[in-house]
Design a protein around this nucleic acid. Sequence first.
DNA 1: CGTGACCCTGACCAATTGGTCAGATCGCTT
DNA 2: AAGCGATCTGACCAATTGGTCAGGGTCACG
Lengths: 216, 216
Amino acid sequence: MKDTGHPAQAGAANEQDKPLTRIQKLNRRKILEAALEVFSAHGFRGATLDQIAVEAGLSKPNLLYYFPSKEAIHVALMGGLLEIWLAPLRALNPQGDPRSELMGYVRRKLQMSRDMPRESRLFANEMLQGAPRLSDTLGDELKELVDAKAEVIRDWSAAGKIAPVDPHHLIFSIWALTQHYADFDVQVRAVLGPKADPFEGAGQFLDMLFERLLAP
Amino acid sequence: MKDTGHPAQAGAANEQDKPLTRIQKLNRRKILEAALEVFSAHGFRGATLDQIAVEAGLSKPNLLYYFPSKEAIHVALMGGLLEIWLAPLRALNPQGDPRSELMGYVRRKLQMSRDMPRESRLFANEMLQGAPRLSDTLGDELKELVDAKAEVIRDWSAAGKIAPVDPHHLIFSIWALTQHYADFDVQVRAVLGPKADPFEGAGQFLDMLFERLLAP
DNA sequence: CGTGACCCTGACCAATTGGTCAGATCGCTT
DNA sequence: AAGCGATCTGACCAATTGGTCAGGGTCACG
């Protein structure tokens, strides 16, 4: 039999998963954690299986026992991550108070930049390279969500609850301003000096910026 | 003699340059252009000399006739680029009208994102990876310039010409918002759809955003 | 038109890369 | 404690990578 016998590869569209051993869960987590570290720092092509293996504390053949290829590791990582990434936008409540909903989104996104910089950089890396490995389904899912939320924001604008702004570009501005502090961390710290915490000032600045932008 | 006889490598600190042949100028330009294309799309580690050679229409050994190593190509590229990159900020005139100076800076930076997206992505790639190949001198040069301009902005704030804002974070916000349209071009276009020009809406949105932010 | 410096190439090399495989070992169930 | 699948490994492989080298072609200039 030529079956390689890989353990079930948990993905978005899982076909046939036996319940995942204790060891399987443990090692898959180790691998994905290591892959996040390495991929986010060097991009897909720049990362090597050896690096990931060392980082995970496993042998290279053992990596390939749990995932069939380097690409498979990357796909699994990206798939799991997009959920986390979209969560703050999903949480934007159309029934809530417009200003505080949007401010809350900004704060959550900035906190993600602070707490999960590697995830942010992984996405940035993928985008920079034209997102060749971000499957179309994921792309569609993102557009759909953004369009839906943009509609909500447009209604808020029309009702005079917030200033009239292009909803899409408003969302882009939130992404850009928050992710900048994760993706360009080195640059920010180089300019600010080693003493200050960038996120301190960033929080205050963004609060003020969006307060002024959104005031009707 | 072990001298490899490489043509003078023009860099920031050039020691000994004979005047550069016609062919040398031509081919160095071809190589740097190709390197920009490839490095900006795949990062340093992800790029290969073969790719660059093909893109430049030269043979690999011929690349290494003009530059002693892959790293040297990258360094030459980054060095030459930082000048271009800092130019819009340098042009910020302390004697000019504060609002229009800053708005002008925003517009110039956005135009650079539109006209030179590869250069933007190259820098972004370098930052994402912790800027390991951005020499300290260049880093210091950047901090110095930013600090100087931040002082100007602080004075404008204190004089009531613009709203009181943290100057460093203001500069960060300009970088973030403008470069986003180059670095995340795929994402922006995916969300906006294939018909619209992102930079159209971006220009108007950023004008309004900074108008509202800076109004005293 | 010759001659020396400049320019370019095919062939090659050692190291690294993603991936395979036969078999050893582990750990859970009976 | 036997057995069997799950887990793991060292050795190996073909392809790719950055880089070298000896020699051949070409250009400018006297």
